Amino acid sequence: TGEEYIAVGDSTAQQVGDLTFKKGEILLVIEKKPDGWWIAKDAKGNEGLVPRTYLEPYS
Rank of each mutant, 00 (worst) to 15 (best):
T12I: 13
R52I: 11
G9N: 14
R52G: 15
K22T: 07
L28K: 07
L19D: 00
D10F: 05
D35R: 01
L28G: 02
E56D: 05
D35L: 04
W38G: 02
V16D: 12
A13P: 10
Q15I: 10
L19E: 00
L28N: 06
K33I: 06
L27V: 06
P57K: 11
G17P: 05
Y58L: 13
L27Q: 00
I26A: 03
L55N: 01
E47C: 14
A13M: 08
I26G: 01
I39L: 13
W38R: 00
T53C: 14
T12H: 12
Y54S: 13
E47V: 15
V8A: 06
A7K: 02
G45N: 05
V50G: 01
Y5G: 00
K22V: 09
W37F: 13
T20M: 10
A43H: 10
W38P: 01
L55D: 02
E25R: 00
G36A: 04
D18E: 15
K44D: 12
L28F: 11
Q14T: 14
Y58V: 11
W38M: 04
T1A: 13
K41R: 14
K33D: 06
I6M: 08
L19S: 02
W37K: 11
T1E: 13
E4W: 15
N46L: 07
P57E: 08
L55A: 01
W37Q: 09
Y54D: 08
T1M: 13
I6E: 03
V29D: 00
E25S: 07
L19M: 05
R52V: 14
E4L: 15
G9M: 15
Q14R: 11
R52E: 15
S59Y: 13
V8D: 02
P57G: 04
T20F: 08
A40Q: 00
G24E: 02
G2T: 08
R52L: 11
V16T: 11
Y58I: 10
E3H: 08
K41A: 06
T20K: 10
L55R: 01
V16M: 11
P34S: 12
I39E: 03
E25M: 08
K44M: 12
Q14W: 12
L49H: 08
T12A: 11
K32L: 03
G48C: 05
E47D: 05
A13Y: 09
A40M: 14
A13V: 08
G17Y: 06
V16K: 12
K44I: 08
I30W: 03
G2I: 10
D42M: 01
S59V: 13
T1L: 13
E3Q: 11
W37L: 11
L19I: 05
N46H: 08
G2E: 08
E56I: 13
W37P: 05
K32R: 07
D35M: 03
N46T: 07
G9P: 01
R52K: 14
T53Q: 14
G36P: 03
E56F: 08
E56M: 12
G36Q: 04
W37C: 12
E25C: 06
A40H: 00
G17M: 05
E56G: 04
P34Q: 10
T1P: 12
L49S: 08
Y5S: 00
W37R: 10
Q14S: 12
E47M: 14
I39M: 09
K44G: 09
I26P: 03
T53R: 12
I6S: 03
S11L: 15
W38I: 02
Y54E: 09
I30D: 00
K22A: 07
W38C: 03
E56R: 11
K41I: 14
F21E: 00
R52S: 15
K44Q: 13
Y5V: 02
D10M: 04
G48R: 01
E25T: 07
D10K: 03
I6D: 01
E47T: 14
E3S: 08
Y58G: 05
G36T: 03
K44R: 12
R52P: 15
V16H: 11
A13F: 09
K44T: 09
K41E: 04
T1N: 12
T20P: 10
G9Q: 15
G48E: 01
Q15K: 14
T12N: 13
K32F: 06
P51L: 14
E4Y: 15
L49Y: 12
V8G: 04
L27E: 00
D35E: 06
A7Q: 01
R52F: 14
S11Q: 12
V50W: 02
V8M: 10
E4I: 14
S11H: 15
D42Y: 00
Y54P: 02
Y54K: 14
L28E: 05
Y58W: 11
W38K: 00
D42E: 01
L49D: 04
Y58H: 09
S59Q: 12
E47R: 09
L27W: 01
Y58K: 08
E25Q: 11
G24N: 05
L55P: 01
D35N: 11
E25D: 15
N46I: 07
K32Y: 05
L27K: 00
T12E: 12
Y5H: 05
E56Q: 11
D10C: 06
D18S: 14
G24Y: 04
N46K: 07
A40S: 03
T53H: 14
F21S: 00
G36S: 04
S59C: 12
Q14G: 12
V16C: 10
S11P: 04
E25A: 10
E31T: 10
E56T: 10
L49N: 08
L19N: 01
S59E: 10
G2W: 14
W37Y: 12
E3P: 05
D35P: 01
Y58R: 07
Y5P: 00
A40N: 00
Y5F: 09
V16I: 12
S11E: 03
G36D: 06
G45K: 02
A7F: 08
V8H: 05
K22N: 07
E31Y: 12
I30E: 02
V50C: 05
W37S: 08
I39V: 13
Q15R: 15
T1F: 12
R52C: 15
L49R: 15
Q15E: 10
D42G: 03
T20C: 10
N46P: 01
K41D: 02
G45Q: 03
F21N: 00
G48F: 05
A7T: 11
R52N: 14
K22P: 02
D18F: 15
K23P: 03
T20V: 12
P51C: 15
L27Y: 03
S59P: 12
A7N: 01
S11Y: 15
K32I: 05
